[in-house]
């Protein structure tokens, strides 16, 4: 992933929350915007990693017992 993610704005936060069907009162918007920016900023540490064909670390087990 080489395209930098844009900084989260309050307007963007409102749209994302609406699409996620997440109520977002006006008095929550600023805090949520800052927190999402911090979380996505951390997650973007993955941008530099070449995952190649690595599968996800999941634990589905098809056995019935």
């Amino acid at each position: 992933m080489t395209t930098p993610r844009p900084t989260v704005t309050t307007e963007m936060l409102r749209s994302l929350a609406e699409h996620a069907r997440l109520p977002m009162p006006d008095d929550r918007v600023e805090t949520a915007t800052g927190t999402l920016q911090a979380v996505q900023g951390a997650i973007d540490g993955l941008d530099a990693v070449d995952l190649e064909d690595t599968p996800p670390a999941t634990t589905f087990d098809a056995r019935w017992s």
């Binding site: 994302l16 929350a17 949520a32 999402l36 993955l46 996800p56 999941t58």
Partner: peptide, 16 residues
């Protein structure tokens, strides 16, 4: 609230 807005593809990238 922030976790609601993390993309599934980012989550799976993290698992990989």
């Amino acid at each position: 609230e922030a976790g609601e807005l993390v993309y599934a593809t980012d989550y799976i990238r993290a698992l990989r």
